[in-house]
Computed example of a mutant assay.
Amino acid sequence: MGHLHQDKKIINRVKRLQGQIHAVEQALQQPENSCISVLQQVAAIKGAVNGLMNELIESHLRHHVIGEQADINQQELDEFLKLLKRYG
């Protein structure tokens, strides 16, 4: 996946994740924070990681599996990616 270093969308997702993880670390050091608020932050991180995974899978499919193929069924690919995002 040598092309990923050029993908600003993916890099920005990773930076946001870093910020979210740092926020959880900070919250854990504050005794006044409730468990529920920390769990909510972790749930948000989980969703963000799933989103990142979907982006990486889609990028891999487009760059390494499909590549330059002209005979792909774009509608079928779009349906597959939508399904992947829903359940992945």
Rank of each mutant, 00 (worst) to 15 (best):
Q40H: 12
H3V: 06
H64K: 06
C35D: 07
G19W: 11
V49T: 02
Q75R: 15
E55H: 02
A48P: 10
G19Y: 08
I10T: 09
G2E: 01
R62G: 05
H64S: 06
H22Q: 11
I57Q: 02
G88F: 15
Q69C: 13
V24A: 09
L39M: 14
A23H: 10
D7W: 02
V65E: 07
S59P: 00
V38W: 08
G88A: 11
S34P: 08
L17Q: 05
E76Y: 12
E55K: 03
K9L: 03
E25V: 08
Q6A: 04
R13T: 01
A27I: 11
I57W: 04
G2A: 03
V49F: 00
G19M: 09
L81C: 03
G88L: 11
K85S: 09
H63R: 00
L77V: 15
H63S: 03
V42C: 04
G51S: 04
E32S: 12
V42T: 01
Q69E: 09
V24I: 08
A70E: 12
L39G: 01
L28W: 06
Q41K: 06
A48I: 00
Q26P: 11
G19E: 13
E76F: 13
G47Y: 04
N50Q: 13
Q6W: 10
H22K: 14
V14N: 04
G67D: 03
G51A: 04
Q30R: 03
N54S: 11
G19T: 07
G88W: 11
C35A: 14
N12S: 08
K85T: 05
A23Q: 09
L56Y: 02
A43D: 14
Q6H: 09
L84N: 02
S34L: 14
I11W: 04
E25M: 15
R62I: 02
E68A: 12
S59M: 03
N50H: 07
L77Q: 15
Q30D: 08
A70L: 12
D71S: 11
L39V: 09
E25F: 15
Q75N: 10
L83W: 15
H63K: 09
E25D: 08
Q40E: 14
V38F: 10
N50P: 01
S34C: 14
I45Q: 00
L83R: 13
M53A: 14
Q26L: 06
N12K: 12
Q40D: 13
E79Y: 14
I10D: 00
K15T: 07
N33S: 08
S37M: 07
S34Y: 15
N73M: 06
E32H: 12
L4F: 14
C35F: 08
E79T: 15
I36Q: 07
L61Y: 04
L61I: 09
K15D: 07
G51T: 09
G88C: 10
E32I: 11
E25T: 15
A27M: 10
K8C: 01
R16N: 10
V49G: 01
L17P: 00
V14R: 04
N33Y: 10
V24L: 11
I45N: 00
Q29S: 14
L17M: 09
Q40G: 05
V65S: 00
E25G: 15
Q18S: 12
V14M: 09
I57N: 00
